[in-house]
Amino acid sequence: MSNLDGKVVVVAGAAGAAGPPLVSRLLEHGATVIALDRDESKVQALTEGAGAQAAGIGVDLLDEQATRELAQRLLAEHGHVDGLMHLVGGWRGGAGIVESDLADWEWLHDLLIRTLQHTSRAFHDALRDSGGRLAIVSTTQAQQPTAKNASYAAAKAAAEAWTLACAHSFRDTDAAAVIVQIKALLTDAMREAKPQAKFAGYTHVEELAERLVGLWDIPAAELNGTRLCLTP
Rank of each mutant, 00 (worst) to 15 (best):
Ser2Pro: 13
Ser2Ala: 15
Ser2Val: 15
Leu4Gln: 04
Asp5Val: 12
Asp5Thr: 14
Asp5Ile: 13
Lys7Trp: 07
Val8His: 04
Gly13Met: 12
Ala15His: 08
Gly16Asp: 13
Gly16Cys: 13
Ala17Val: 07
Ala17Met: 14
Gly19Cys: 06
Pro21Met: 02
Val23Pro: 03
Val23His: 01
Ser24Trp: 00
Ser24Asp: 14
Leu27Asn: 10
Gly30Ser: 05
Ala31Arg: 00
Val33Leu: 05
Ile34Trp: 05
Asp37Trp: 07
Arg38Ser: 12
Asp39Glu: 14
Ser41Met: 13
Gln44Ile: 13
Leu46Ala: 03
Glu48Cys: 04
Gly49Thr: 11
Ala50Cys: 04
Gly51Val: 06
Gly51Met: 07
Ala52Ile: 12
Ala54Asp: 02
Ala54Phe: 01
Gly56Asp: 11
Gln65Gly: 06
Leu70Ala: 13
Leu74Asn: 07
Leu75Asn: 02
Leu75Asp: 08
Ala76Met: 08
Ala76Arg: 10
Glu77Arg: 15
Val81Tyr: 09
Val81Ala: 09
Asp82Ser: 01
His86Tyr: 11
His86Gln: 15
His86Lys: 14
Val88Trp: 07
Val88Arg: 01
Gly90Ile: 11
Gly90Glu: 01
Trp91Gln: 06
Arg92Ala: 14
Arg92Ser: 13
Gly93Lys: 04
Gly94His: 05
Ala95Trp: 14
Val98Phe: 07
Val98Asp: 12
Glu99Phe: 06
Asp101Leu: 12
Asp101Asn: 15
Leu102Val: 15
Trp105Leu: 15
Glu106Arg: 08
Glu106Ser: 11
Trp107Thr: 12
Trp107His: 00
Leu108Ala: 08
Leu108Pro: 05
His109Pro: 03
Leu112Ile: 12
Leu116Val: 08
Ser120Gln: 15
Ala122Asn: 10
Phe123Met: 04
Phe123Pro: 03
His124Lys: 15
Ala135Met: 15
Ile136Ser: 05
Ile136Arg: 06
Ser138Glu: 00
Ser138Arg: 00
Thr140Asp: 08
Thr140Tyr: 02
Thr140Pro: 04
Gln143Glu: 14
Gln144Met: 04
Pro145Trp: 05
Pro145Arg: 04
Thr146Lys: 15
Thr146Met: 14
Thr146His: 03
Ala147His: 03
Lys148Arg: 12
Lys148Phe: 09
Asn149Leu: 07
Ser151Asn: 14
Ser151His: 13
Lys156Asp: 03
Ala157Arg: 03
Ala157Ser: 04
Ala158Met: 06
Glu160Thr: 07
Glu160Cys: 02
Leu164Met: 10
Leu164Ser: 05
Ser169Asp: 10
Phe170Gln: 04
Arg171Leu: 09
Thr173Trp: 00
Ala176Asp: 02
Ala176Lys: 05
Ile179Met: 12
Ile179Lys: 12
Val180Arg: 00
Val180Ser: 00
Ile182Lys: 02
Ala184Val: 00
Leu186Glu: 06
Thr187Glu: 05
Met190Lys: 11
Lys194Ala: 13
Pro195Lys: 09
Pro195Asn: 03
Ala197Thr: 06
Thr203Gln: 01
Thr203Met: 00
His204Ala: 10
Val205Thr: 12
Leu208Glu: 07
Glu210His: 03
Glu210Trp: 09
Arg211Cys: 07
Leu212Ser: 02
Val213Phe: 01
Gly214Ser: 09
Trp216Arg: 00
Asp217Ile: 03
Ile218Glu: 02
Ala221Trp: 01
Ala221Tyr: 00
Leu223Met: 10
Leu223Glu: 02
Asn224Ile: 01
Cys229Gln: 10
Leu230Asp: 03
Thr231Pro: 01
Pro232Gln: 10
Pro232Met: 05
